[in-house]
Structure formats: structure tokens, C-alpha cells
């Protein structure tokens, strides 16, 4: 099966103060099939946004590569290739030029492609706004004249107008009001269905990711610690970090204050040794011989899922990987 997007061993490192390096993303690999949706979740500092930016070409990877349909994809790619990958930011206000009517912003990607005449570009911008549930009349308004939800719809229309194959969504619902968030979540699901889009959905909101994506990868301090189909990950999370994340999601009737983690997340500037999660891990005592604090667990694939935890490595004998295809439904 050839993937639409394949990320192989992606590393992004920044120079920090005092000559230190921040390993924002370390050896991240995953792939998204055509029309698939992968959720990338994790807390702030987990490197999920940096991963998205590196794939979009906004950040040069230090190592590794990004393949789109088997072809290397990045800053050097031709405009026509770039148009196939679009990015939607968290802050819709900031992603639209404040001094341009929003219709202009929706047309901009087309103008950059040099496709069509001014009239057909406008036509497609109108239609894209329409598809995103906005009255095309609003294309004459300035961004500040629209509500937060409307601005995010404009940003999505701008991403769609070039008919991309992959849309990278970086926290697209985080800045929205509760009652508007549901509208945008539904819109994203509808659009994917309608146009056969693939999504890379970066979010800290697991409930939203569960709605939108069939597959979820959990990142912690720059690495993927668990990847699984939606049905598996939410029903039976295996990594202690995933378990802690899910337990901390506010739900009606659930007492959040019951099972907090002992510590706050470590800084990416000073990641702990061994498994980066070990100082906070409530289950590290189950692994013998301080292995968690000494040895970095490797991400092991078991069928559809992958896990990087010493706990599982002990529990699941390597000779017998888990049965493949357990409840993964794509499409």
C-alpha cells in the first residue's frame, strides 16, 4: 500500500541558549494513506506542532524526510506539489491578512498557482466559501469583522480552494468557543468525506481527535510513544502516558481530581534520561531494574499499532506480535 504522506525518521532540533540543542522532534515516522486521517496528540512541548510545521515546509527538518506520493516534499518542491498540501492554523485571525478582504485571502493560493483568470479564481473562492458553510457575500469583509468560527471557516476554505490531497490542521478548534467548536468539527468531517481529503490533525483535544481521525499517534517530548487505530487507542490505551492523558480529559460526571500525575511535564530543554515519561509514570515500578530511567524504549509495531514502552516489551513477547488488523476501520 503506497501512502499519500510518509514521514521517515523526522528530527527537528533548535539551537537554544548556552549552546544547548532542543530536540523538538526526534525520529518521528508515520504515514497517512490517501483519504486517511491521523491525529497527532500530546501536550505542549511534545513536538506535535513542530512536526506539522516541518511537514508543511515551514521548518527545515534536521534529519529524516517527508514523502508525498513517494516524492520528496519540502521547501524546494514545485508550487504545484505544494498546493497538494495545505495548512490550517489554530489562530484563524492571524492566518488571514488583516488588511485584505477575506475573499482575497481565499483567492491567494490560486493566484500563487497562477491558475485561471481573475474571474474563475473568484468563482472558485466563492464556491469554496460556500462549501465551508459561509455566505460568499462575506468575502468582502475584513477578518476582524467576522466571528471566530467564521474566520476559521474562511481559513479552511482557503486551504481547500486549491483542491489539496492533504490538509494539515494545527489545533484548528482550540481557539473557538464551545458552541462553535462542534460546528467546525462537523464541517471538517463532512469536507473530508465530500472531497476525499487526508488529514494530519494536530490537537491536544482528544475528544475532537476521536471525532475526526481513524488513527491516532501520541507524542511525548518529541517522540511518538503510541500509535493505534482510533477504536483501539480510546478503548484500550496501552502506554501509561496515553492512559494518563485520557484519564485527564474532562468528561461529565468524571472526577478529574482523582488520578493526577505526580509531576508536571519535563521541559524539552532538559529531557529525562531513558524513557522521557519515566519521572511521571505511575507504572514504572512494574518494570524491573530501573530500566525505564536508563534505557530508551523503542517504538515497536504490533500489527496496526505501535508502542514504545518497556512495560509492553516485557508483557508482549517479541516472537508473537499482536494479531494484525484488530478492529481498524479505514475510510
Amino acid at each position: 500500500m503506497s501512502a499519500l504522506l510518509a514521514v521517515e525518521g523526522l528530527c527537528v532540533r533548535f539551537a537554544a541558549r548556552e549552546g544547548r540543542m532542543v530536540h523538538a522532534v526526534e525520529g518521528v515516522s508515520f504515514s497517512i494513506p490517501s483519504g486517511g486521517a491521523l491525529g497527532l496528540v500530546g501536550e505542549s512541548g511534545s513536538g506535535k506542532s513542530t512536526t506539522a510545521r516541518a511537514i508543511a515546509g515551514l521548518q527545515a527538518p534536521s534529519e529524516g524526510r517527508v514523502l508525498l506520493d513517494g516524492e520528496p516534499f519540502g521547501r524546494q518542491s514545485a508550487r504545484s506539489a505544494r498546493a497538494r498540501v495545505q495548512l490550517v492554523f489554530q489562530d484563524a485571525q492571524g492566518s488571514l491578512d488583516p488588511r485584505r478582504p477575506v475573499g482575497w485571502s481565499v483567492e491567494e493560493p490560486l493566484a500563487l498557482q497562477g491558475s485561471g483568470t481573475a474571474k474563475t479564481r473568484r468563482a472558485r473562492a466563492f464556491a469554496a466559501l460556500d462549501a465551508c458553510g459561509l455566505d460568499p457575500k462575506l468575502s468582502l469583509r475584513y477578518p476582524h469583522e467576522l466571528s471566530g468560527g467564521q474566520r476559521q471557516r474562511v481559513a479552511i476554505a482557503r486551504a481547500l480552494v486549491c483542491e489539496p490531497q492533504l490538509v494539515i490542521l494545527d489545533e484548528p478548534t482550540s481557539a473557538l468557543d464551545v458552541s462553535v467548536r462542534a460546528q467546525i468539527v462537523n464541517l471538517l468531517c463532512d469536507l473530508r468525506q465530500r472531497f476525499g481529503l487526508a488529514y494530519l490533525f494536530v490537537s491536544h483535544d482528544l475528544a475532537v481527535v476521536r471525532r475526526v481521525c481513524e488513527e491516532v499517534a501520541v507524542m511525548y517530548l518529541g517522540r511518538i510513544v503510541e500509535r493505534a487505530p482510533r477504536s483501539e487507542l480510546f478503548a484500550s490505551p496501552r502506554h501509561p502516558y496515553t492512559q494518563a492523558l485520557l484519564a485527564a480529559v474532562p468528561e461529565i460526571g468524571r472526577d478529574l481530581a482523582l488520578a493526577p500525575l505526580a509531576l508536571d511535564p519535563a521541559s524539552p530543554l532538559a529531557p529525562p534520561s531513558g524513557c522521557a515519561f519515566h519521572p511521571r509514570c505511575p507504572r514504572r515500578s512494574e518494570v524491573p531494574a530501573q530500566r525505564c530511567s536508563l534505557e530508551l524504549p523503542i517504538l515497536q509495531t504490533h500489527g496496526d499499532a505501535a508502542l514504545s514502552c518497556h512495560l509492553a516489551a516485557g508483557a508482549v513477547p517479541r516472537a508473537h506480535p499482536a494479531a494484525p488488523g484488530s478492529g481498524a476501520s479505514r475510510g
Binding site: S147, S179, R181, N186, V208, R211, L246
Partner: peptide, 25 residues
């Protein structure tokens, strides 16, 4: 009522679209 229903949660069914409150505040 609408607010409670429209919040995505880990337990609601995925068979239907999320019920939404139309419009904006």
C-alpha cells in the same frame, strides 16, 4: 441542554454528527 450535547466527548457515539448549536453567540 445544547451545550452539553455539543461538547465532543470520549464516550459519545461516532455514528452521528455532533449535535451543534447553530449560529454564533
Amino acid at each position: 441542554r445544547a451545550l452539553l450535547r455539543s461538547v465532543p466527548s470520549l464516550s459519545t457515539s461516532l455514528d452521528h454528527a455532533l449535535p451543534v448549536i447553530p449560529g454564533t453567540p
